[in-house]
Design a protein around this nucleic acid. Sequence first.
DNA 1: GATCAATCGGAGCGACTGCTCCGCCTGAAG
DNA 2: CTTCAGGCGGAGCAGTCGCTCCGATTGATC
Lengths: 210, 210
Amino acid sequence: MTLADHAAPAPRPGRRADAERNRAAIIKAAGEVFAECGGGVDVREIARRSGVGMGTLYRHFPTKDALLVTVLERQFDAWLTDAYQWAVATEDPWRALTGFFEQLLDTQAGNRAVVESFATTGGPSDACVQRCYAIIDELRTRCVDAGVLRSGVTTEDLFLLSGSVSQAVLTTADSHPGKWRRLLRISLDGLSSRNTEPLPEPGVGTDARV
Amino acid sequence: MTLADHAAPAPRPGRRADAERNRAAIIKAAGEVFAECGGGVDVREIARRSGVGMGTLYRHFPTKDALLVTVLERQFDAWLTDAYQWAVATEDPWRALTGFFEQLLDTQAGNRAVVESFATTGGPSDACVQRCYAIIDELRTRCVDAGVLRSGVTTEDLFLLSGSVSQAVLTTADSHPGKWRRLLRISLDGLSSRNTEPLPEPGVGTDARV
DNA sequence: GATCAATCGGAGCGACTGCTCCGCCTGAAG
DNA sequence: CTTCAGGCGGAGCAGTCGCTCCGATTGATC
């Protein structure tokens, strides 16, 4: 997997060589196992797959959840970076935005734990979510300036949209791989400025706000 | 596993009065508890809430999953019927379709277990899903005949769309209730016949980004 | 009221899982 | 090589959860 190259961990000084090796093995194995089985897997499976004992695993990560967050953060951050770099290199603002989402969802397609994290905690981690928000906001602003985005669409709308489609990505992964692209396209087309009706305000008002 | 294994029969004749009362109490309590906490709750909590012992609960339902399916089926079926009756009474095909989805999602909003069921097993039960499919297909056909629906949109697309937005309904329920309506509107507007670009076919490669 | 089969309740069993404890091992410093 | 602190492994602890077992109870029938 190419995403491993992206962010090198911070090798703490004064740690023994075998400890460093084991830590890397744990992160790698956990990444695979969580992606396959979701965050609910038995920790023993991760220990087994990384060729390490339970004691070793729990010295490096105080808790199963800490390991999960570490792994999720790394993976998602790498994808985010890839998709973002592609998007900034794309001139057409609309294609940059839509392509960003498609690329991001594409990489998530096979990762149970990442998709789960959107449903349960709203994202892999607060830091990831904030970074994602910042990127989406940049791409959104470009679209707004170009006048191709429906008025009233917020960054939060876009983030939520991505999270909800990611659910469909996972549920159709086995039976109909790729079918989620239709959903994404439909939703994204609803974001086009050709849709002029105002979006409903979550408050109480029934009125139009543009 | 066929539906018959899960579906609990209607009030059987020769059952004692207290047994019938307990059965009803179990279903009622289970409906509330599953809705609040999701399908992962401890069965003991359901027994407690319904004022019944574990033995009683397990005489009426062979398995926790059977109870869950029974409850989910009842609830979802009721909502489906309501939303459908509203839709058939609505003349405008587009409003019938969009209103149907909004109404259905609205009732699901507070029910963890039902939303979960879409993410895990694709729906409350096979029978429910089929019935839902049939209804959606009818509403879809009306829209197609009226020429208001984007060409190429399948019943499956609509079902998947509903399931994915339902996820957003749950994740935003606590923090931003009602925000999902914006998402739904966006997605539904992408279904309008004013969007003329063909939808990507699954099975073919990923040239959709252009 | 007497009878008894259907029903009830909840302690407890077995399986699973996150995490810890502790005796053994080993990399690296002198 | 010797030394030993830091690292290692995995058996086991404690808590949870689905489900069962069986003695006590109770509704229906006569």
